[in-house]
């Protein structure tokens, strides 16, 4: 069989996306409420920083606007996981009911086909809020602006987003082995809340854990240092794109391994 090219998959994605949006449009109220709910959670995060910094001027050498920058960075880099990989949340039910088998009979990449089926629009509200937060804190911090910074920003945002995608995909894949995997996924989803804190507040043991075992430090902290503190960028920051790709590849392999092992339920 001929290997399908990138262009083929891109075209296919647009077609599937159009179908998905059509079906979403029939639940317009749900879409509006979900988007508002999403923005609500983001505002709550913003407000809790605001309250904290009313009482304290810095946290571990990090000012209010620097923390906001981290927060905005984490929101934007979480968006792709939210928008494109939301079907991970349903994987458990498909596997349990046996419906997952329908994905196994298509002559295209299984992982691609499964994830392409759902596009979560409410993630766009988060993207807008995150971008707004980044721009606001960027201006307040007076970081300056060069085209190179913009390119760096885009590259690091994309690779940072791979980390969250990897965490969520690996967590979802556990359903191939254990039954009630909702809680594993929920646990991974809660990690995103911890990504907005600078890793330097933790003791060295947890710094290690949050860098290499549960790599939440790569969602916002390491990549955003490149823009935020350009004079003291640690090596791990420059390596973070590689880590993003590596984590994603490992998660993809785990997911595919589970899917290939899948036997169906016989129905």
């Amino acid at each position: 069989m001929k290997r399908k090219g990138l262009l083929f998959y891109l075209k296919l994605y647009c077609k599937i996306l159009a179908q998905d949006l059509k079906s979403k449009m029939s639940y317009r109220a749900d879409f509006i409420i979900s988007t508002i709910g999403m923005i609500f959670t983001n505002i709550a995060g913003f407000v809790s920083f605001w309250i904290l910094f009313r009482n304290f001027s810095t946290i571990n050498g990090w000012g209010y606007y620097e923390m906001l920058f981290l927060y905005g960075f984490s929101l934007v880099s979480l968006t792709p996981a939210q928008c494109f990989f939301d079907n991970n949340w349903s994987l458990r039910q498909y596997v349990y009911s046996g419906d997952f088998i329908k994905y196994c009979f298509r002559p295209i990449n299984l992982f691609f086909y499964y994830q392409s089926e759902v596009f979560d629009i409410k993630g766009l509200g988060q993207l807008a809020f995150g971008l707004g937060t980044i721009i606001y804190s960027w201006i307040k911090l007076g970081l300056g602006f060069t085209p190179l910074m913009l390119i760096k920003m885009i590259v690091f945002l994309i690779t940072a987003s791979l980390v969250m995608i990897a965490l969520q995909t690996a967590a979802a894949a556990t359903c191939f082995w254990i039954h009630n995997s909702f809680f594993v996924l929920d646990l991974a989803f809660r990690f995103k809340d911890y990504a907005k804190y600078p890793i330097t507040i933790f003791s060295s043991v947890f710094r290690f854990i949050f860098t290499f075992i549960m790599p939440i430090a790569f969602i916002a902290y390491y990549p955003s240092l490149v823009i935020l503190r350009p004079d003291e960028v640690p090596l791990l920051s420059w390596l973070s794109p590689l880590f993003g790709i590596a984590f994603f590849y490992i998660a993809y392999r785990i997911w595919m391994y589970g899917a290939m092992k899948y036997n169906g339920t016989g129905s």
Binding site: Y27, A29, D30, I33, S34, I36, G37, F40, A44
Partner: peptide, 14 residues
């Protein structure tokens, strides 16, 4: 509303 996720997340956040 036929929406659970959105309603629930708003309640939880508040």
């Amino acid at each position: 509303t036929e929406s659970i996720w959105g309603i629930n997340i708003m309640k939880q956040v508040i």
